[in-house]
């Protein structure tokens, strides 16, 4: 069972991520109404929001240290938040501002914060190899730092994933692979993309334990991830965890979602993982509603401040595009 501090930490990280994404959904539409033009507005370009997937971030990252590496995919905000990425500079990056993490070069799919060893990128399964490499570096340096590679259930069918799993299994590297199964690869349901229902079974083929976490259960994931992280830290090798999670928004903001069964999102929201965690926390008796509210309010205030920071920030000079191609 998580300690009181761990519970509150996870709850706060999840509230922060949710409020961050819901705020982004509103901000993203600024300058895009009534005509939705993906390149227009305060925040242009593709926007992939992770509301509903908060357990995957909080339930794993609660076990991590700043020196541990996390790689995330194109839908990265919840994981970045749980890993402790600088929220002001992350938001400024998403706004394309000079004070952003990368001075506006990367945007929302390319967030890099070396202070907490977080990176994400926009092409499916791309982070698996680098997570293996960071784990290899830790091993070679004699550190007990580990890596976590986040991918979606769609990425589990990409060649890079399989090569990275085999490498990690072969070399017994300290990596935890986390598959966020939000049931949809853009418009394609998992049942039409993956030959087996439970992808965690594939772990056996790569010589590592596989775990399946049903129905977006934060506390179940907390236990499984704790085991996997501890095993990696002890030098016993990698693990694969698949988490059934929820995608509340479309693949990207602008996705008409015509492929999605009516009522699916409402049904998922009826069992919202943040509400479930809060209820479990309060029923556990150690945490009061006032403490939970304080955590939630703190989270929201931090998010509001980050958006204010990003709005007030300056755009980069156009010529800055030419810098930082090389080290």
């Amino acid at each position: 069972m998580p300690s009181k501090a761990q519970l509150l930490w996870m709850y706060e990280a999840m509230e922060k991520a949710r409020y961050y994404e819901d705020t982004m959904a509103t901000v993203y539409m600024e300058g895009k109404q009534p005509k939705f033009d993906i390149g227009a507005g305060t925040v242009p370009g593709e926007m992939h929001l992770a509301a509903g997937q908060e357990p995957c971030a909080a339930g794993v990252c609660v076990h991590l240290r700043p020196e541990d590496t996390v790689t995330a995919p194109h839908r990265p905000h919840h994981v970045a938040i749980a890993k402790g990425v600088d929220l002001n500079r992350m938001t400024a990056e998403i706004f394309g501002k000079k004070s952003g993490l990368s001075g506006g070069r990367g945007g929302h799919m390319h967030l890099f914060d070396p202070a907490v060893n977080f990176a994400c990128s926009g092409i499916i399964a791309e982070g698996t190899g680098p997570a293996v490499g960071a784990a290899l570096a830790a091993k070679l340096k004699g550190s007990d730092a580990i890596s976590v590679s986040y991918i979606g259930e769609g990425a589990a069918n990409q060649g890079a994933t399989h090569e990275a799993l085999n490498l990690a299994g072969l070399w017994k590297l300290p990596v935890v692979f986390v598959i966020e199964d939000n049931a949809w690869g853009i418009s394609v349901p998992k049942s039409k993309a993956t030959a087996i229902a439970d992808t965690s079974q594939r772990a056996a083929g790569y010589g590592m334990p596989g775990h399946h976490v049903a129905d977006n259960d934060t506390l179940a994931l907390f236990e499984v991830a704790g085991e996997a992280v501890a095993r990696a830290r002890r030098g016993e090798g990698p693990s694969l965890i698949e988490v059934e999670t929820y995608r509340y928004y479309g693949h990207f903001q602008g996705d008409p979602e015509l492929y999605r069964p009516k009522g699916e999102v409402e049904a998922l929201k009826a069992k919202d993982p943040i509400e479930r965690l809060r209820k479990a926390m309060l029923e556990g008796g150690e945490i009061t509603a006032e403490e939970a509210d304080a955590a939630r309010d703190r989270a929201r205030q931090e998010v509001d401040e980050a958006y204010a920071f990003a709005r007030a920030a300056d755009y980069p000079a156009p010529e800055e595009a030419l810098t930082h191609v090389f080290a």
Binding site: P44, G100, G103, G104, R105, G107, H110, P316, A321, V325
Partner: peptide, 11 residues
Amino acid sequence: PDVPIPYSRPM
């Protein structure tokens, strides 16, 4: 000009 395409609009 031989740089990756930057995200931010002015760049």
